[in-house]
Simulated assay, not measured.
Amino acid sequence: MPVIDITTDTENLTLTVIAEFAAPIERVWSAYSDPRQLERFWGPPGWPATFHTWDHTVGGRADYSMTGPRGETSRAYWEFTEINAPHGFTVLDGFSDENGVPNPDMPVGRMQFSFEPTADGTRSTTINWFESIDSLQQVIDMGIIEGTRAAMSQVDAVLQDLREYAQGKGTEVEMLDDTHVRITRMVEGPRDLVWRAYTEPELIKQWMLGPDGWEMTECEVGLNAGDRYRNSWAPVGDTEGEAFGFEGEMLLVDAPRRAVQLERMQGTGGPDVLNDVTFYEEDGATLITVLMDFPDKETRDMILATGMAEGMEQSYARLERAVLAVRGV
């Protein structure tokens, strides 16, 4: 976790975030000054950022939005007032409407990003100044502290090359809190083909099988927000177990970057689990990230105890083979 301290100062109307990265200052600067890299962590899990404009010059502006798992959008902007590469930059930070026009009803602050080399990498200090105690309290109430910690937990994956970060690690499960779990798996294959393997029934049936000895007996996909989907599995031959399945609704589809769905066991009234799946490609490999949002800790623990992660790893290994097999299609 890069964040080592977050403090608020009601006298000076500031919120300060201190983080440390195991990367040189030039690499950290690159992550903060390239919108495509910044998109990967500027926004907590489940609310990824998209930068629509990026003019990284003094007086220039960057407009961005963050999209929630149900398609809800929050839009904001930066206006660059100082730039001192690679040691930092300062922006005016405000909210805007759906067209990028500044929202006068929301607070405008000043934010300074500072980077300094350390013996082990780089220390980042981000200071947010606010116009009033009410403005500071407003963003605290909106969850800026929790959101910042969650967002910064994604930086390590950005600072390293994808293969250096994820190759050979298999399916990794990270508990973010009592109701959120992040699962990552790198697949050797381009994102477009991984997306196809996730959305084309004839490919899904080749890999989404869990442990050996099971087959997929039903595969109905949803390709648009609002579509229903349904998947079923059954044991083959002497394999022990009872047939089961999941069904649900697609909440958001942004091909080939992201798919969000509500899922529940077939034949039950829930509980629903929200699965937010994103796909990031680098140098011909794709990082699959699944953010699972459970209704409570008990449901989280019950589902993880089923051996879900082990079954996912076996499925992802098949996915990798399937992706490679259709590479030339």
Rank of each mutant, 00 (worst) to 15 (best):
S65R: 11
G71K: 06
T81G: 09
M106E: 12
R40S: 00
P48H: 02
L92R: 15
N99V: 01
F89K: 07
G94V: 03
G59I: 06
N99M: 04
N84G: 07
Q112D: 15
D55G: 02
W47P: 06
F95K: 01
D34S: 12
W78Q: 08
P107K: 04
T50K: 12
W47K: 03
P44Y: 02
A62V: 07
P86G: 08
S65V: 11
P45W: 08
N99S: 13
T67P: 05
H52E: 15
P104L: 01
E82Q: 15
G43L: 01
A85E: 15
P35A: 03
M66Y: 06
M111D: 03
W42T: 07
P35F: 05
E98G: 00
T57W: 01
P45N: 07
M111P: 00
G88V: 11
P44L: 01
M66E: 10
F51Q: 07
G43E: 00
P44H: 03
F80Q: 09
G43C: 04
D97Y: 08
N84E: 15
F51T: 08
T50R: 14
G59E: 08
N84L: 12
E39A: 14
V108I: 14
T67Q: 13
P107L: 03
F95R: 00
V108L: 13
D34Y: 06
G100C: 04
H52K: 13
T67E: 12
R36L: 11
L92S: 13
V58W: 10
D93W: 14
Q37G: 01
N103S: 14
F89P: 09
M106Q: 10
P44C: 02
W54R: 03
M111L: 14
V58A: 12
